[in-house]
Design a protein around this nucleic acid. Structure first.
Length: 491
RNA sequence: GGCUCGUUGGUCAAGCGGUUAAGACACUGGCCUCUCACGCCGGUAUCGCGGGUUCGAUUCCCGCACGAGUCACCA
């Protein structure tokens, strides 16, 4: 049996969005599971859509995701070149071959342009019946032309997809598609078929948007007498539109590029894990897989048919789980790395805190409550500066804190804090109990007041003890004093 | 509009003729707790609709509805 070969064939038109990555991932996994090769081919036949630098985005993305290719433009391989714009002679050669076999013809018609809805019934095949004389004449006069594939006018084409099963389409639905454009470049349809054949691709894996054009490709394979590859069409990934409907994932409906997700603080491995589960489902109830595990588990028969909606909320949860599973030390590294690459205004301060002796303490309170790295700066903002806050948050029914006892608590807290020598968790914890018994309230009441005084927030990562410990004795006292002064001004 | 494909809760989904219709996210009730979070224990579906086939359909068949994809000198 031939070795399995799959390919990822992106166009260098900008960023990689999640749908692209998902295709790449599945293509990679299918190859790996079957001990095959995974190759990258750049499909840049549309010069007008080319975006400089796209290739490096593609390589970077794949690398971050952990997807390694066996052949490609950057690393070469036995079927080089792997960039379509460098393979033009090949397409031209095959174009003239199919022309001479009568499977295609010259077309001198003007560009069709976009016709109004419902009006278009496809190309009218006018040039299909041109005589050889007419053709020669026009060629001699340098009339611009394209080469079109001659489709059968009747009958039915059918093929088997490994995911969707048998699919049939009436040949009359098929248009005489263009193989070579007037600029001499091949269309995607043609280049794709030629290259997949030339590069011995055994399994063509792609999104299901290609399902309805697959018969056209098969007709091409037939015209050349090539064997048709296995098809694996992947269910689409849909995005939620602002109006609540769903449609193919695109920039418009909130889809983001892989890069963007990473820069928001999603872990690449979480993203990979998440998208692997979009349209594929392992046997059991397990949801967490490393790439290596996926390589061993991934089977084609567990790929679904129905499209799935990309739900960021679940990604958020998965990311959260990944972060929680890290050791605190590991988490620190990830955070430091993320912050130093980021644009946060507080970047320097945060790094300082993280790199100081408090890094572990801070990470401990953070890594159980941060869904994505990008949320960290706003969560720990208060460590650097206490913003003005509404005093109402001091008064809490459950803690039994009132306008009467808050100043008392604060006063006692300041006195006792001043005397504290042992600035450790245990030491700090003990002062709250002392204050509590002195004032005659519960520990919880003291801690409530303390925490809000030094943070200005009703909700903080970490409790009073942790925050005291991190900001240090001087800052703590300074903030407690400020809170006391402010509380006196309140009616 | 034609064609193609799809349809299990808001989302991801298991299920492949007989099940109390898994599990996860989200939502939600409670517990825990110095706040939040974590954690723990619960709650939420007449399987799009209508016909068949069958002793029996979420599962098989046919219509309909709805959704998506596709109808480019884009990929």
């Amino acid at each position: 049996m031939l070795p399995i070969r799959t390919r990822f064939a992106p166009s260098p038109t900008g960023f990689m969005h999640i749908g692209n990555l998902r295709s790449a991932l599945f293509e990679y996994l299918i190859a790996k599971f079957l001990n095959g090769k995974f190759i990258i081919r750049i499909e840049d036949t549309d010069r007008s859509r080319y975006v400089a630098g796209s290739e490096s985005v593609i390589y970077k993305t794949l690398k971050l995701a952990g997807i390694k290719h066996d052949e490609g433009p950057d690393i070469g391989g036995p079927y080089a070149p792997y960039v379509q714009s460098q393979r033009r002679e090949i397409y031209l050669k095959y174009a003239s071959e199919i022309l001479s076999k009568g499977g295609a013809y010259y077309c001198f018609c003007e560009k069709e342009g976009h016709s109004a809805e419902g009006e278009s019934h496809g190309y009218n095949r006018k040039c299909r019946i041109l005589s050889q004389d007419e053709i020669n004449q026009k060629l001699m006069k340098n009339v611009p032309y394209v080469i079109r594939q001659k489709m059968p006018l009747e009958g039915v084409s059918f093929f088997k997809d490994m995911v969707f099963g048998e699919i049939s389409i009436k040949n009359e639905e098929l248009e005489d598609q263009i193989l070579i454009k007037s600029d001499g470049f091949p269309t995607y349809n043609f280049a794709n078929v030629v290259d997949d054949h030339e590069m011995n691709i055994t399994h063509v894996v792609r999104g299901s948007e290609y399902l309805s054009s697959t018969p056209k490709y098969n007709l091409l394979y037939d015209a050349f007498g090539w064997s048709i590859p296995n098809y694996i069409h992947l269910p689409l990934i849909l995005g939620k539109n602002p109006d609540g409907t769903t449609s193919k994932l695109s920039k418009r409906n909130g889809s983001v590029s892989f890069q963007e997700l990473v820069s928001q603080g999603f872990l690449p491995e979480a993203i990979v894990n998440f998208i692997a589960l979009l349209g594929w489902n392992p046997k059991g109830e397990r949801e967490f897989f490393t790439l290596e595990e996926l390589e061993k588990e991934f089977t084609i028969d567990r790929i679904g048919k129905s499209p799935s909606v990309f739900d960021v909320k679940k990604l958020l949860w998965m990311n959260f789980e990944y972060m929680k599973s890290k050791s605190v030390e590991n988490f620190v590294e990830i955070v430091e790395n993320f912050i130093s690459n980021g644009q946060s205004l507080k970047k320097n301060e945060i790094i300082k805190v993280l790199q100081g002796t408090n890094r572990l303490k801070l990470s401990k309170i953070l890594h159980q409550r941060v869904e994505k790295l990008g949320d960290i700066p706003e969560k720990i903002d208060f460590l650097f500066e206490v913003k003005d806050f509404n005093f109402e948050i001091f008064y809490n029914k459950k803690s039994k804190t009132t306008p009467e006892n808050v100043p008392k608590i604060l006063l006692a807290l300041i006195e006792i804090t001043k005397k504290l020598k042992d600035w450790s968790y245990a030491g700090i914890r003990s002062i709250f109990s002392q204050v509590a018994s002195e004032v005659g309230v519960k520990d919880a009441a003291v801690m409530w007041v303390a925490r809000i005084s030094v943070s200005g927030l009703a909700v903080t990562p970490g409790g009073a003890v942790e925050i005291f410990e991190i900001i240090g004795k001087d800052q703590t006292l300074q903030r407690l004093e400020a809170a006391l002064q402010a509380s006196k001004l309140k009616p």
